[in-house]
Amino acid sequence: MKELVVISGKGGTGKTSIVASFASLAKEAVIVDCDVDAADLHLVLQPQIQRREDFTAGSKARIMPGHCTACGKCEELCRFDAIYYDGPGNGKVPKTFRIDTIACEGCGVCFDFCDDKAIEFEPAVCGQWFVSQTRCGPMVHARLGVAAENSGKLVTHLRRTAQELAARQKREMILCDGSPGIGCPVIASLTGASLALFVVEPTASGRHDFLRVAQLTMRLGVPGILAVNKADLNEEVTSDLEEFARQNGIAVVGRIPYDPAVTQAQIARKAVVEASSGPAAEAIRDLWTQTQTYLHRSAPAAAGGFVQLAGQQQESTT
């Protein structure tokens, strides 16, 4: 089983449009939307939800106003500015302390040290995840709650679910829409994948962000290939991106021209290759052929989102 992660560093480079087209061309893949912060793939693939589950991660504290004596110890100990003196009065004190659940990091310090046992510490539901059916095959996706955290854990969970599904249905490929940035959710999207396809725009910031996410990918031991989107916008930066890629062992597999058909397809809720036979659609078809070649050569996705170690550092103290 092979797992392709489409990634960009910078957001808005056309990653999701390419994933939707790949899903349409692949037909047999399990599709995962790991961009849980700004999940958009469902807008094009229009999944029919078949399984829906709550996603729980960590816990959040809550002060029970009836028990609070307003001693202020929790506010003093909280490192996350999550505790405020504006809760309701309770007969004993005119005002109590209150926890801002959005700011609460879930460390449990207030709960552990409250002398009056006035704080509850309960598991927090952060969102929902889904297994769905689409016209292009099964899809695993999620919706995070407002201002919810822990998207790294959710990403790992979605990928595991997709791997189990692929194994059960004997599907050979997992197609993953990665998230932007270089932090927790991206690390969770990439770890143990067979191949990363970078979709980059030829801009100063696209270039800058690509260099950082490419470093991360190399560090995680995931091989990468590059496609430049809207390549005709700035030929000079395009060539520069491709040169950097080659020097770092990243194969250059395609250039996609700027084409208004991409936005038109999105508005029609279709993948570009479904809605158009214009220049962008043609380039994406070629890109898919190239990507498959590299995917065949790559290592299988390791069970449970793991990768065999190339070299590793350990970080611990005694």
Partner: peptide, 10 residues
């Protein structure tokens, strides 16, 4: 002799 998989964030 060493870990056989990369760490991950979950």
């Amino acid at each position: 002799a060493k870990a056989n998989v990369e760490g991950h964030w979950s």
